[in-house]
Design a protein around this nucleic acid. Structure first.
Lengths: 198, 198
DNA sequence: AAGGTATCTGAACGCCCGTTCAGTTCAAGC
DNA sequence: GCTTGAACTGAACGGGCGTTCAGATACCTT
């Protein structure tokens, strides 16, 4: 046997990445073999190397695409000239809504950093810092203008990011609360945490 | 060669667990071999099996000990008859202070759940729920008494736990802030988040 | 219909894995 | 000082790992 019926790089490529995303999130990068990914796609292990140069790059690309997507999505909805409280509320709602639909990518991007080579780690960290810097800038500005009352902008940014991202560890669609309700609840917590009651 | 000079189960046992804790946290359970742990201890791989029946139990015991220690430590300092705001502040300070000194154990206990067998996972989850239930109870009580204003006690408990635990991802001793200052800053964020200004 | 190319198989490479165990050496109780 | 058992070695087991590649088959262009 060789080439499969209906095979096409345009479909197999995305299926490889989807399988890797799902398995990496569920079992962890190190615990997932290329053979397991291939089996999920319905292909032999060797065929994966038509779509990625190696396993490390497969992980790196998944992370990079996730972080670039987050940045682009935020840039598209970010209210730019707006008071700090409104910008913070928008960020919190956006962050929760965006992450709640991508628990697997979020999990990988935060937990498999240690599996990256030093070079790849540095590039991913730069992307993350750029995104998280958006929140820190909002907080810093609000602290300066007196709109927020907070201990330390950097600490508060880290604390709020952790809080907001944590939604992915428990939320599952079909529960008692809708995505929008959850996002609103988190936004209210974030606003009050910095002394800007909603 | 066989038995080492100065060898003693009372010293090697803890060194095995310490090495496993450090390596599991840094590389991940699946990525760490028994040979790597043995090398860190200065011993051959076979010798590890004098101290653990297998690799899985080694991980499970590390998690269980960590969670039982957290519960016991909180039980020892918990202010029991006290107003909700005071109890929340105590919990936040305790949680940050306790976790900030054990980043490796925290990381493992939250991230290697997927590496546990279903049986072991259930036991660890029960311990975690018991601890996090303490915070939820405080929030629920405060919401009932009107001391707190929050969207949903369970959601808020999860959000605050995620926020507080997040301190382990960035805090390193020797930075500009002391442990106590960090704990106080997080406690202030937590109090304000539930509408109980510090 | 034919040729070329994209896609995949199946076997193989060297290496590392968790775990076991017979054998060896050290420490401690008498 | 001898004996006994605790502590450890070193080799081995079967199996899985990431990756490569020659060969086979399906699709696409002409």
């Amino acid at each position: 046997m060789a080439r499969k019926v209906g095979s096409h790089a345009g479909t197999t490529g995305p299926r490889v990445r989807a399988a890797a995303l799902r398995l990496f999130a569920r079992e962890g990068y190190a615990a997932v073999s290329m053979r397991a990914i291939a089996a999920e796609v319905g292909v032999q292990a060797g065929a994966l190397y038509l779509y990625t140069p190696d396993k490390q790059t497969l992980l790196f690309d998944l992370m990079r695409e996730h972080l670039e997507e987050v940045r682009a999505a935020w840039a598209a909805v970010r209210p730019d000239p707006a008071p700090p409280a409104e910008r913070l509320a928008a960020f919190a709602r956006f962050h929760v809504n965006h992450h709640i639909d991508r628990p697997e990518a979020v999990f990988i991007a935060y937990m498999e950093l240690r599996a990256l080579t030093p070079e790849n780690f540095a590039r991913i960290e730069a992307l993350r810092r750029a995104y998280e810097g958006e929140l820190e800038a909002i907080l810093r500005e609000g602290a300066c203008s007196g709109a927020f009352r907070l201990p330390d902008a950097r600490l508060a940014a880290r604390a709020l990011i952790a809080m907001l991202t944590g939604v992915t560890t428990w939320y599952r669609a079909g529960g008692p609360m809708s995505r929008a309700e959850v996002a609103e609840a988190y936004a209210a917590l974030a606003l009050r945490a910095v002394g800007a009651p909603a």
